[in-house]
């Protein structure tokens, strides 16, 4: 159950991104903007359970920059494909291209990414 440690890293990433934005704008927004929503992408083969991640976020966000933020999780399906002909491998099939005999390459589905943040600016 490493979803708490992922949430810890997520909250740190959000704080860093908001901090960088405030440093970049000429007239800093006062007070610190409230984080309204956090969008993440989680791949099917990223080893992260989305329901546990959502629960961990609920618990962990208290007292952090994400205290009032909603978490939106975009689940990315695993996509194995041939690195040569780019044909998709059938789900559950052998991870080798039936035409080219090349070992499949994971084209999508291992991401653990903070996509965007929505800030409430007054």
């Amino acid at each position: 159950m490493h979803e708490y440690s992922i949430v810890q890293s997520l909250v740190d990433s959000v704080a860093a991104a908001v901090g960088a934005r405030e440093a970049a704008v000429r007239t800093p927004v006062v007070p610190t903007p409230v984080v309204h929503r956090v969008d993440v992408s989680i791949g099917e083969l990223a080893g992260v359970d989305c329901a546990l991640l959502a629960t961990a976020f609920e618990v962990f966000r208290a007292g952090t920059i994400c205290e009032h933020a909603a978490l939106r999780i975009d689940r990315i399906a695993a996509l194995w494909e041939c690195p040569r002909c780019h044909a998709a491998i059938v789900r559950g099939g052998f991870l080798r291209c039936p035409s080219c005999n090349e070992p499949a390459h994971l084209a999508a589905g291992d991401e653990i990414v903070l996509q965007r943040i929505e800030l409430e600016v007054s």
Partner: peptide, 12 residues
């Protein structure tokens, strides 16, 4: 409130 999007696209 005004909602301002901030694109991050960073590996967590």
């Amino acid at each position: 409130v005004n909602l301002v999007p901030l694109d991050v696209q960073q590996r967590i």
